[in-house]
């Protein structure tokens, strides 16, 4: 699953880099990879890929700050949505 998120970020926002370069804790917000509009794309993707309702995903930058943070957020959101 984590590969998914990373692939998505790289394809969408960093098409010019080698996947090995992007560490899981790289700050995507601070470094301008994902801006506030990009955030909406990430949220839409998370909703679609993980069967979460858009209304249940708060657009808080902290949840989407790094590959690791997105991964954690998705896992928790899936548990609270009863999806596992």
């Amino acid at each position: 699953m984590s590969g998914d998120i990373k692939d998505f970020i790289i394809t969408q926002f960093l098409p010019d880099i080698d996947p090995a370069e992007l560490s899981d804790d790289y700050d995507l917000v601070e470094n301008g990879v994902v801006d506030s509009l990009g955030l909406l794309r990430v949220v839409a993707w998370v909703s679609e890929t993980h069967g979460l309702s858009l209304d249940d995903i708060p657009i808080a930058p902290d949840n989407f700050r790094s590959v690791e943070a997105i991964r954690r957020f998705v896992a928790e959101a899936r548990v609270s949505a009863g999806l596992h």
């Binding site: 960093l14 880099i17 080698d18 790289y26 601070e30 470094n31 301008g32 801006d35």
Partner: peptide
């Protein structure tokens, strides 16, 4: 690589300018 350069930019520029 571009990621390192991006980090450099975000240190010296406001976000909309990265």
């Amino acid at each position: 690589r571009s990621l390192a350069l991006r980090t450099h930019c975000s240190r010296h520029l406001p976000r909309p300018a990265v």
